[in-house]
Amino acid sequence: MSNGHGNYAAPDNETRHARFPLPSPLPQAGEGDKGLLRKFHVKHSWGLLLAGLGGSLFLYLPLVIVVVYSFNDSNIAAQWVGFTWRWYDVLLHDAEMIQAAYNSLLIALVASAVATVLGTLAGMAMYRYKLRLLPFLVVAPLAIPEILTGVSLLVFFVLLNMTLGLISIMLAHISFCISFVAIVVRSRLAGMDESLVEAARDLGATPWQSFRLITLPLIVPGVLAGALLAFTMSIDDFVITFFTAGVESTTLPLKIYTMIKIAVTPEVNAISTILMLITLLLVTIASKLAPNAMRGG
């Protein structure tokens, strides 16, 4: 089953034609009524363009509104009063918010570091060997409702008599981050030229040497992209954190949730804007590192 995070790269027509050049001039389909076709084409594209415009508006307008209102000099989000940096100032002096940001950062760093190691191992194992259980365990967490993962971990930790807090959140995050790293690394390996490793072996490299000198450098971008993906997933997670956090520890998403539920102020918009900027930066870096692996998510 596809899970939205796979590698969707497919040979397209241009590359196919480049590899097998066709005699030019190419015979055009429907050349007889070219005028009619062109008219038809334009009409068709207009409909699609309109849909594209509407779709982009639907996708982006809500986020633009959040950013714009983070500079609004009013306690109510609905009316524009005037420009202010006030909410960013409030944010910087909100001790609870800073603690939540610190917790989120710590959890994301630890969880993504551990998940990167385990996920890279899993991705390599899935690529090299015909395994049954591991691929199932990697994909299954992405295929079941998140709430089940959250409550089952809650029950698990409480039955173990563990105090819910930073540690339990980290353990939970590592679990779902492994899947993302493994899938990205695996798809990076699948795009690798196997003949390089064979050539190294033919030239007398030991399996370890060919791994260290050929495979490892080639998958580094995939590993880094996986790490960034895991970091983003961890810092953004709400549902699983909500169930495994207990009462003492707060992360940024939990803090935002509380503010939304109890008393909304434009401070939420300010922290949202900052989080969006950070995510934008991370995603840009990750997509530069592994363009193919990131295209699916």
Partner: peptide, 24 residues
């Protein structure tokens, strides 16, 4: 494709909160 998935990368709660403002 990147532009389409970019909003999806912003925090889940922020995306829900945005509609609280719009539909308020």
């Amino acid at each position: 494709v990147l532009l389409v998935i970019l909003p999806f990368w912003s925090n889940f709660l922020i995306r829900v909160y945005a509609w609280m403002i719009i539909l308020g």
